[in-house]
Amino acid sequence: MQDMNLTGLFIDLMGRLGLNYEFLATGYEAQIWRDGFITTLYLVAVTIPVSLIVGLIFAACLTSGRLWLSAPVRGFVELTRNTPTLVQLMFSFLVLNTVVSNMLGGAQNNPLSPFFWVVAVVGLHVAALHAEAIRGGIEAVPSSMIEAARGMGFSQFEILRYVQIPLAFRASLPAIVNGLISLVKSTTVGNAIAVSEITYASIMVWTQRDNVVELMIVLLAFFSLINFVVARVGSWVERRLAIPGYGL
């Protein structure tokens, strides 16, 4: 009851400013819109770990020094960085998804949802950005340190795991945070294949209500807020991990 009154008060106040938020008082459209926010947050929360893990694997392949590992990853990174995310998404959804459906004998057997494809495409796209950042960090680790580790009997993998990645991660953290901010923005392409994230939900509302400006204000504020939180968490991690005296 208290909640309803607050919503009513908000609609009334905004109405006086000339902004039409009346749909919030209706059950159905407000529900779609709320779900849109939740879907976007969920999408971001799932895609961030995917991009970080895959980015780390890509970076390990790129710096492995083995051509059969680094060349395919290098090719993928260049392809995904230099083609639009939307085209990759449509290609995956229209082509790969159809191929999977055909292999499984019909679309009804296909367990892969549009949501999955958005996570996969955006996750891999941002993973390519992370991979470049981490690779730069790995290559910046002084060779004397690697030689010292080798002298102490570390294997190639152990050097990567205990020496290169911890230092490279710290050095590349600002670039990784930038990648995550572009990840947040990229999740909006999901609306091309009808994932009901916030822009899709907003289109549903404004085609009925013709209140584009009002919804745009909220959308811009929402994305600014998410990116602000991501940037804040990033700088917090950066401070927590800082090694005194190492200069990172």
Partner: peptide, 15 residues
């Protein structure tokens, strides 16, 4: 700077 490109394109198209 924080706005997704798609949101801005929608904004200008519909406004």
């Amino acid at each position: 700077r924080n706005a997704p490109a798609l949101v801005l394109i929608f904004a200008t198209t519909y406004i």
